[in-house]
């Protein structure tokens, strides 16, 4: 009997290889609690304080509705563009060898590093009627500054690295033998991409596009310079929330913020669900 008792370790603690589980886990949870969960909770509570009727009134007021519609539409345009362009960029960076590839690779991160206000200012300068691009577009009757297109361009500028950086590592890890197998079985290059390569990168591609969309929804600094911020026309939701705050209308600000957060959360949940469905099917090795 005693020998059996001795053979069993006293607790799980003794079996852990890495020390400091308590400390590191505690720090992580405190961080998540204080920096992430608490503000979100505060926002939800503040929204709940307003009451559903008042909340609905604020959100469905013409100005808020217009701002939300603009934000979501512009973010969707920016995401569609980024999904296509980001995939192309990731492809070029992983598949071809050309001089300056590393430089181009490093340049992909500029939108992350650049202060968004700087991005907004330079985009405005480029697209204004006497700017480099604007002077070409204006005679053709296309105006970008102070329109939804300006908003979308600013959003796509700041969020394009998300797609590139999520797809790139997956493309790099693809086993070239899988493509060779498809080739030897008679598949054309386009078929290989459609049926072999794209299914492999699809989960990462979706995640990248979703994060890019979420980021676009909340983009502030880059957008407000180029948008012109005309109420009902080119006023984005987060700017409207700030305007409400400056008017000491805390309820109005909280209601708009809560709505933006809900849209982002729904999107994240949707992408997670899509991903897990695909992983089950794909059986990631």
């Amino acid at each position: 009997m005693t020998s059996v008792a001795v053979a069993i370790p006293r607790s799980g603690r003794t079996r852990r290889v890495l020390p400091g589980f308590g400390l590191t886990m505690g720090l992580t949870l405190s961080y998540v609690g204080i920096i992430v969960l608490l503000p979100v909770l505060a926002l939800v509570l503040k929204g709940a304080e307003i009451g559903p009727v008042r909340y609905w009134e604020i959100v469905t007021s013409p100005r808020t509705l217009a701002a939300l519609r603009l934000t979501v539409t512009a973010a969707a345009i920016a995401t569609l563009f980024n999904a296509a362009y980001g995939l192309l960029m990731a492809w070029v960076l992983t598949r071809y060898c050309f001089p300056g590839r590393r430089l181009l690779d490093a340049m992909m991160d500029i939108p992350f590093a650049l202060p968004t206000a700087v991005a907004g200012l330079s985009l405005t300068a480029l697209f204004s009627a006497n700017g480099w691009y604007g002077s070409i577009l204006a005679p053709a009757g296309i105006s970008v500054v102070y329109t939804i297109w300006g908003v979308a361009i600013a959003m796509s500028f700041t969020s394009v690295p998300f797609v590139v950086r999520t797809v790139q590592p997956i493309l790099e890890d693809l086993d070239p033998a899988v493509e060779e197998a498809a080739r030897s079985l008679g598949a054309s290059p386009f078929t290989i991409f459609r049926r072999v390569i794209f299914p492999a990168i699809q989960p990462a591609f979706l995640v990248g596009a979703t994060i890019a969309f979420a980021r676009s929804l909340g983009e502030f600094g880059a957008v407000i310079f180029i948008a012109g911020n005309l109420p009902m026309k080119t006023e984005i939701a987060s700017l409207l929330a700030m305007i409400r705050l400056e008017e000491y209308d805390y309820n109005g600000a909280a209601a708009i913020a809560l709505t933006l957060m809900l849209i982002a959360l729904i999107l994240l949940a949707l992408s997670n669900w899509l991903q897990s469905r695909m992983q089950r099917k794909g059986g990631v090795t």
Binding site: D175, A177, V178, A181, R195, V196, P199, A200, V284, T285
Partner: peptide
């Protein structure tokens, strides 16, 4: 050599 089956 490593079969190169299509994983999905």
């Amino acid at each position: 050599q490593h079969y190169a089956l299509f994983p999905h």
